[in-house]
Design a protein around this nucleic acid. Sequence first.
DNA 1: TTGTAGGCGTTATCAA
DNA 2: TTGATAACGCCTACAA
Lengths: 348, 348
Amino acid sequence: MDAITIKDIGRALNLSTSTVSRALRGSYEISPETKRLVMEYAERVNYRPNPIALSLKENRSRVLGVIVPQIANNFFSQVINGIEAIAYNRGYHVIIMQSHENYEREIITVQQAVDRKVDGLLISLSSQTHDVSYLKALHEKNFPIVLFDRVSSELDTPQIIADNYGGAFAATEHLIQNGRRRIAHIGIPTYLSITKERLAGYRDALQQYELPYDETLIRHVNLGQHEVDPIVDDLLNQTPPPDAFFTASDRVALGCMAVLRRRGVAIPEQVALIGFTNVMVADLLAPPMSTVEQPAQEIGQLAAEQLIERIEAKRQLPPATTHKLPTRLIVRESSGLSQLTQNLPASA
Amino acid sequence: MDAITIKDIGRALNLSTSTVSRALRGSYEISPETKRLVMEYAERVNYRPNPIALSLKENRSRVLGVIVPQIANNFFSQVINGIEAIAYNRGYHVIIMQSHENYEREIITVQQAVDRKVDGLLISLSSQTHDVSYLKALHEKNFPIVLFDRVSSELDTPQIIADNYGGAFAATEHLIQNGRRRIAHIGIPTYLSITKERLAGYRDALQQYELPYDETLIRHVNLGQHEVDPIVDDLLNQTPPPDAFFTASDRVALGCMAVLRRRGVAIPEQVALIGFTNVMVADLLAPPMSTVEQPAQEIGQLAAEQLIERIEAKRQLPPATTHKLPTRLIVRESSGLSQLTQNLPASA
DNA sequence: TTGTAGGCGTTATCAA
DNA sequence: TTGATAACGCCTACAA
């Protein structure tokens, strides 16, 4: 590996490195003749500035750190897709790291990212993260941070989320309007903001239609584990059993579907199923599962934009706000492929 | 953002930077007393070496570049998962880039990665990549490259693939042994190595069981497009229609399943379906789709190991070889959850 | 045992 | 218009 430097160019052209540097950057104080000479030679030998040297000099790496609970997850890989699209356009690269849904690893990972001199951090909190004070400390040192999806109100950073409340409300409302009365809800860990919001949307929809809020129909599962089956079984063994499931995640929805299939329950004739999800394959397998789709890619894009804006901020920035992106309700009917997509307005 | 340097430590302790540097690295030529002093102070002020400065000095970035056709894909995100696991253990970070199944973008992306001074490259070729001479040139400059999944025999680099032939053979054999006679095969673009291997496995299985190789049952689809439906429809409209589908990718398998569902075809009673895949959700939705599962994570791990070995190679390395990882045949029967996993031996 | 000086590739300041 | 020098943070040969 050769790697041409400005020093090489200078030597070849009998110019000082500073002249070469200036010529390459098109500085006005270099004679057109010299400029041309340098440019042409650089082109010819395929000169590329060394970004590491630049990073050292400018004290910035042009790298964004992304920390997600796990990469091998449809939602997060789509978010990352959105992040990358923006990042590359703006000349940044992306280093992706995983917390594996583990609080301690999240702390270590964040530390690693900072040590690695990323210019800013995009984070979706692990499901075990109760305490964000370590992030708060970082943020107070003016380190650029943007949270997405799994956010925390304790942090005064930009937060990008789907309209979880609105999506859950719409899903529940849809089920009610289709005659469902006993709607089970399986959520993810209760202390996650997204869980609370989805539960609230569910609850408020019931309330609006004057249906009882039945605690026995509400369950929560941990992430990264496979404990859905017994919970679904348990719910189905109630008398009367639920006539619909609204699940707060794609994995849970699919687990739910598996149990229903196994028990020979017709979906959605006997039990309707609607998941808060973004699984592309659900599209292909549909019907019978309806979904509230999260704008994963847009979340990533907006998060990256916000972060880069803060990284490059020269003047005062507007205060950090929470950006809520609308979800889409996709209703898949059992018969044929009739599919109805409803773009939901953002809830207040 | 503060960021302590050895210079700061030296100033605080009245030592030269070299002494601090040596003390920190535990050099034998520093007095235990000084060492302790430095270590303790460094610990107290939370000193972290600047990796960028190190990179500049050592002319290595400790970053692996990973180039995949797309991130938002189950297979690749699992591979990346495997890569990360190894990389972090060995002190490397991973920058992920996408070719978007586009040859020109692949070239640009590889160039960007090299410009960015990654220490080596893990690549799965885009489906449009016919010509790998640009990689060959890079490889001949001794730049460490490892290919995985979408590989090319024209490159003399390590190549990590699933046992595509063996998996396809086993899948086809399984269908035959269960009485299927007209097995349709839908593959991906023909010039991809994985396509050829899977097709060969399919063909050889037919041959071994003395079934005809019927060209009209063979189709290919482009990646990243949604043109599966008409193809499946077309195949089903044959007389007699196929009694089984063997598809070379997860997306195709799911598209296939959607069409079968739409047409009310019972799976697998009327038409069996087996996909070369790694979709985790297929597990949850099963039955009725059987799968040949690729060891995605292991592919990533092995690829990363190979690459790091080559990056850090001090002495002569063994010649580049192709590593073929066994697949797993997972048969999902229609009734109940009876599921049979068969670990396939690697084919020759 | 510790300090000095030089260099990794680049740019900015100052001098010529 | 161009060149010499210093600096970013770290390491190491050489000197003391």
